[in-house]
Amino acid sequence: MLLATLGVAGLHWLTNRYDHAVGKQQLLAPAARQPRTDLSRGLNYLLIGSDHRPGANPEDQRSDSILIVHVPAGMRQAYLISIPRDLLVAIPAASGYGGGQDKVNAAYEHGGGGEAGARLLSATLGQLTGLRFDGAALVDFSGFKQVIDLLGGIRMCVDTEVRSIHTKTLFTPGCQQMDGTRTLDYVRQRYDLPGGDYDRQRHQQQMLRAVLDKAGETHLRNDPVQLDRVIRAVGGALTVDTNGVPLEDLLFALRSLPPDALHGVQVPSYPQNIGEVSYVVLDNGGNGLFDAVRDTRMPEWAGANPRWVNRL
């Protein structure tokens, strides 16, 4: 009984410390927000990776990564659905922006970046998919580098040789240990890759899987000092909107989600030039993907559409 009490107290302390470390904002637009989150019914979370660069204006930013994280009821598996950054969508009007057709990652910029940019992006995706989100998280990639470094780096498997357009680093095929800087440089690449942005999406999904794998290793759980550093680094890299659900309850609900239950999904789509501008457009309306998320039929959809499912 004493050990159980201490264990619960320790979990309370960690989640409370994390809760105070992470930033909180209203990232979801009212029309894109699930009125009430029920953790027993599964989750749909919007994950936005900001490509803020030193010296750039906060308003002049586009979302570098956009994922819908779908966790069916039971919390035993999760689908990482990557939204193509060049997907042609209708962006609703917002303060200072009249609305119109544009690439989906421009919604974050048109909204002014940060909290307001995330709200406009969520409204855009809600309108496109018919989904309402149970929460959202805005990830600062510069802070995420520290998380990877505190984990001791992660194992990434390079499948195609590519040279970074940012640092000129050459990534050669094979599985290798990468620190935070090298990892984020690699997962930002899309030029000179056979699948272009689709390969970039898959690499970002693989990075999330690798981070969860490393964070779940026994040595980290047995080292409270290092665990505390990782928790504070994660908190510093995240801004969240949990839709009123206590962060402790959310983490407790997801505690049984194993890393090997992650499935990477690409939105059925194809590139197309429109008015001399390169876009990505939905293939047959997304081939029923968003319907499957809304109706909690993702396992069936994934089985029927293996072309759009990534092995992580």
Rank of each mutant, 00 (worst) to 15 (best):
T172A: 10
F141G: 05
Q61D: 14
H219V: 14
L46T: 09
F133D: 12
T172K: 15
S82F: 04
Q177D: 14
Q146H: 14
L14F: 14
G153H: 07
N222H: 12
V281H: 06
R182G: 07
R76K: 14
D51S: 10
N305H: 15
L67M: 15
R36I: 07
G196T: 06
R232I: 00
P224E: 00
G100C: 01
Q61H: 04
A21R: 02
R76Y: 01
A116D: 11
D197E: 05
V104C: 03
A118G: 05
M156V: 09
G216E: 00
L11Y: 15
M178L: 11
C157R: 10
S95M: 08
L120W: 03
H70S: 11
E161Y: 01
L121D: 06
I231D: 00
L257Y: 07
Q272W: 05
Y186H: 05
R33W: 07
T129L: 02
Q204G: 07
D149T: 09
V8P: 04
R119H: 02
I81Y: 03
T181L: 15
A137P: 08
L80Q: 06
Q266Y: 10
N305R: 06
A107H: 01
N287V: 14
A4S: 13
N44R: 15
V69P: 05
A90I: 08
L257D: 08
Y270S: 10
L170C: 00
W13V: 12
G99N: 00
A261M: 08
D60Y: 04
Q146K: 13
A215H: 05
I154W: 10
T160I: 06
G264A: 11
S269D: 06
A136T: 06
V245N: 04
D228L: 12
G286N: 05
Y198S: 10
Q176A: 11
N284C: 01
P92L: 01
G303A: 12
P84W: 08
W301L: 05
R221Q: 15
K145D: 11
N284F: 05
R188Y: 02
A233F: 03
R36H: 15
R17W: 10
N44G: 04
V234P: 02
N105R: 05
D241V: 07
V22H: 03
G285W: 04
G100Y: 00
A137N: 06
A32Q: 03
G174S: 00
N310Q: 13
S63R: 02
Q127S: 13
P35L: 05
A29N: 12
T169S: 13
Q25E: 15
L212S: 10
L11E: 12
V240D: 03
F141M: 15
R155N: 13
L312Q: 15
Q61F: 00
D283C: 02
V240T: 11
R190S: 06
E59M: 10
R221I: 12
T183C: 13
G216A: 06
Y18A: 14
D295G: 01
G288W: 07
M298F: 08
D197C: 05
R53M: 06
R119Y: 08
Q204V: 05
R307S: 12
Y45A: 13
A93T: 02
L28C: 07
A90N: 13
H166L: 13
G216D: 07
N16V: 03
Q201T: 10
A31Y: 00
P224Q: 02
F144R: 06
P246Q: 11
L282Y: 07
